[in-house]
Design a protein around this nucleic acid. Structure first.
Lengths: 243, 243
DNA sequence: TTGCTTTGCGTCAATTTAACACAAAGTAAT
DNA sequence: ATTACTTTGTGTTAAATTGACGCAAAGCAA
């Protein structure tokens, strides 16, 4: 038994060598919502053969950090925002996906409120990053287009089940804005009146008793999302958040 | 521009060194369904300090394979079955999760029909692997308990949206068996009559015109799942598979 | 004051879901 | 062969949810 253990460990150790060690990068698909369009934050890729193309924002995993920490680090470095929503998407491990050698990447996606961002986002060389409308993205460096598609599919699924969309909206929003958001992300049309009914029935919106101004029509009521009540309801199991 | 590229590449290359390379393992949560219980295939862990505990079945990622290929290899080696359902769960990257050094693991889960398995499954040392009822698993080596929980949560979500459950059932099954399966996996109770109605309405079950035998009561009709029709309907977009 | 645009609400029909009871098919026991 | 027992298989009805739709209200602009 003891011998067995030792053998087993030695087997393991012998495998833990250079040959089976890999560089790991963490790439972030940062979604933002603005002007009724879903956007993704991209940087210029200047690595052959992908010069001139855009790529996701990422970095290599460092020695003592978890992948979650790496994703958080990358995001905070770039956006200067904290407490961002982060979710793992997938691992991309094609041996030839990276021109400089084998790099396995773990993709995350994140949602940010473009209002908060205020154009401060730059890359490592201080070049401005660019928000690109998701629908217009058709070519990216590496396998990043596939990653973006997977992340979007995941976002579409998650946004219906969990109120993550509120991270992408202003703190104060109108029901119409909220509806537009769901219509954009899910790529469907919703009936205004039925949408309102459903959302109000959830009981998770706080009526701020405030209104839009500077609009050439009836101003809309503003709401915020009641994260506290959401947590409570979720814990009790009372919740059926389903858009 | 050219200089920029070179710099950039050098920056990358300098990072692609030993310090930021990691061993990667692929661990499989193999679910099986039998006797109205959901089970997980486990092996004995004889690595200190986890001697005596059970662990998931896994292996190190090899130099030229993708993680999907690694998961498939591991599964086929152990179960001797091919064409198994496989889905990525999550990456587990705590630097101290493995006693022999940093090993980042990617978990997959898979579903197999215990009938097909016929007790042939052995580990690398030819020791019989063990099916353990999910509900009774409360302690595993490494962070494998967390992995099993995550995989189960993922299974619960996916099983409602995609007909993956049929991989875990006999090819010929009764509606009651099917209902029991969903009740077990989702941990809910379903009304027999409403369940039947819903399933029949899907139009994806083939009535085999066969019946159970050797049962001390009215024998149940047997069905099989119409994978062909499912693919068709899915492609046309006619489908609403929602248990 | 009128017209324009967008917000906000209520109703009604259609669909879906939930709850429920009883007959039918077979085996086992007498 | 009759009866008891167990499990399968089906239909009906009320309640809840969803979908479709029209119209009044609020504000700005002309």
């Amino acid at each position: 038994m003891a011998i067995n253990n030792t053998e087993n460990i030695n087997t393991w150790l012998s495998h833990l060598h250079e040959e089976t060690k890999f560089s790991i990068s963490v790439d972030c698909v940062i979604f933002g919502y603005d002007e009724a369009a879903l956007k993704v934050l991209l940087m210029d890729c200047n690595m052959p053969p992908y010069e001139g193309k855009k790529s996701l924002i990422g970095d290599l995993l460092q020695k003592q950090e978890t992948t979650d920490e790496a994703a958080k680090r990358i995001l905070e470095n770039r956006t200067l925002l904290t407490d961002l929503y982060l979710e793992q998407v997938n691992v991309y491990s094609n041996p030839f996906r990276h021109p400089l050698g084998r790099v396995i990447t773990l993709a995350y996606y994140s949602l940010i409120n473009i209002e908060d961002y205020e154009n401060q986002i730059v890359d490592a060389e201080n070049k401005q990053l660019e928000w690109k409308t998701l629908a217009t993205i058709d070519d990216l460096a590496f396998d990043h287009l596939e990653i973006v598609k997977d992340a979007y599919a995941r976002l579409q699924r998650t946004v219906r089940e969990v109120p993550i969309g509120f991270s992408m909206l202003p703190k104060k929003f109108s029901l119409i804005q909220l509806q537009n958001f769901y219509e954009t992300v899910l790529d469907i049309e919703l009936d205004r009146r039925n949408f309102r009914r459903k959302l109000m029935a959830l009981g998770l919106l706080i009526d701020l008793k405030e209104f839009q101004d500077n609009v050439a029509h009836r101003p809309a009521k503003l709401y915020s999302f009641d994260f506290e009540k959401y947590k409570q309801k979720k814990n009790i199991g009372t919740l059926n958040f389903e858009i």
